[in-house]
């Protein structure tokens, strides 16, 4: 394995990127955002070019542009999220990041998640953010539309933050590149794990309907649970067995020869879509986790309600006092100029 990218070049790019971000961050005096973006973009571009040439060198044909476009857009919008002085626009840019990263997922054929993220993240979470931003920010009063709160305009110790950030990046990258090679590749989905293997009878039926199974041929089956005692073996559904290339093993009528049906020529019905696989994965592999996820969401809801409610109660009390004051003044016979109790929270 030759080195993907010359280490010096990579770290140089990291530094360049850091400087770009640094300049781009909102600052008291000169808003060097544009320049920052340029530098950052240049660094990113150089990085992608190198990666691209690497791919070309490996003879994989023209580099797949989709990935580069989507990642460029995602990273740029991420940069804008953190550099844009106004929170509203930061949220909007974030939505763009979400959309572009879903694009990346599509490149990886993980379409279910792509759309799930757009819907849930973009739709739900970011909307709550918008809502809160609207609620919590003073909102530009008429005179100083542009009067952004001071704490939005100035970022805090940018130099140290960026340095820390990119140190983390460099380290992560080194881990990823350096360490990744030592990762033991996950062996092909163990035959028994593949969803296809677990629906042996259904598979046999579809193959026969598709006319791929000759008379008397059967799928090679294997007990689901290894090493179970003899009595365990009988009553469990038998799994179809997949060989290492992912093809189904079919037993000839006379039970002697085994031929494999390559995946390519599986009938359409057998192809599982990504959503099915994810669903299968969720249900079959970690059902407990889903339950817990549900509980987490419930707790979050409860928490939000509690937090919110206390506010109301506070107001109740404030309101009572206000009314008492008002009544006292009116009894004094002075013409009480009815004061509208302060809207929203008092302090």
């Amino acid at each position: 394995m030759d080195t993907l990218i010359n280490p010096f070049l990579f770290y140089g790019l990291c530094v360049l990127g850091a400087v770009g971000v640094l300049v781009a961050l909102p600052r008291q005096k000169i808003a060097g955002f544009a320049i920052g973006v340029l530098i950052g973009a240049a660094a990113l571009a150089a990085f992608f070019v190198v990666l691209g040439r690497q791919a070309v060198k490996d003879g994989a044909g023209l580099p797949n542009f989709h990935f580069y476009i989507f990642s460029a857009v995602a990273l740029f919008s991420a940069l804008r999220v953190i550099t844009h002085p106004r929170p509203i626009y930061a949220a909007l840019w974030f939505i763009l990041t979400i959309v572009s990263s879903c694009g990346l997922y599509l490149v990886l054929q993980a379409e279910f998640l792509a759309f799930a993220l757009v819907i849930v993240y973009g739709g739900a979470i970011l909307i709550t953010y918008m809502f809160v931003i609207m609620l919590a920010s003073d909102g530009p009063s008429e005179d100083a539309v542009e009067a952004m709160t001071e704490y939005d305009r100035v970022s805090r110790e940018p130099v140290i933050a960026t340095f820390a950030g990119f140190l983390v990046l460099a380290v992560l990258a080194s881990f990823m590149a350096g360490g990744a090679s030592t990762l033991k590749a996950n062996p092909r989905m163990a035959a028994t794990d593949d969803p296809m293997a677990q629906m042996a009878p259904k598979v046999e039926k579809t193959l026969r309907e598709a006319g791929l199974l000759a008379e008397g041929e059967k799928l090679v089956k294997r007990p689901k649970i290894e090493g179970g005692g003899p009595e365990v073996k009988q009553q469990l559904a038998l799994d179809a067995t997949l060989d290492e290339t992912g093809g189904l093993q079919i037993l000839s009528a006379d039970g002697r020869t085994v031929r494999t049906l390559a995946e390519k020529d599986w009938p359409e019905a057998l192809r599982l879509s990504d959503a099915q696989r994810v669903g299968f994965e969720l249900i079959e592999r970690n059902p407990g986790a889903i339950e817990i996820a549900g509980v987490i969401l419930l707790m979050a809801m409860l928490g939000a309600v509690v937090l919110a409610r206390k506010k109301v109660e506070l107001d109740e009390q404030a309101k009572l006092e206000a009314m008492a004051r008002a009544r006292a003044e009116s009894e004094l016979g002075r013409e009480a100029e009815f004061v509208q109790p302060a809207t929203g929270g008092d302090n």
């Binding site: 991420a78 990041t97 970022s155």
Partner: peptide, 16 residues
């Protein structure tokens, strides 16, 4: 990684 770091930097620098 880059996106994570950008998020981190954002978290560290922004005061809002």
């Amino acid at each position: 990684g880059i996106m994570f770091v950008l998020g981190l930097i954002g978290f560290l620098t922004r005061r809002n």
